[in-house]
Amino acid sequence: MIEIKEIEKLAELSRIEISDEEKKTFLKDIDSILGYVGQIKAVAGTANSINSREESKLKNIFREDANPHDPGQFTEDLLAVAPEKENDCIKVKKIL
């Protein structure tokens, strides 16, 4: 059983504002979901050999760091969707 303060912690980590009423709803929902998904803890014999065999099939894929687009080619389109901007920059509140 998770507690209300864990919900508050999750909301904080997720940078999401939630009301006290919602905290209760989320507590009930997340508790019931964790109860269901927790059944995998009972699966026996998930030997590391299986996991490492799967992992050996996975590899990172990178594109060649070559043929860059022209500087500024997408600036206008991308800035057009920014909520606040100044000159060719996205404007944010000061951090320090």
Binding site: I2, L10, A11, S14, I30, L34
Partner: peptide, 11 residues
Amino acid sequence: ARRRIMLGTYV
């Protein structure tokens, strides 16, 4: 969306 973000953060 909020429920799943929080659940994902938990796991």
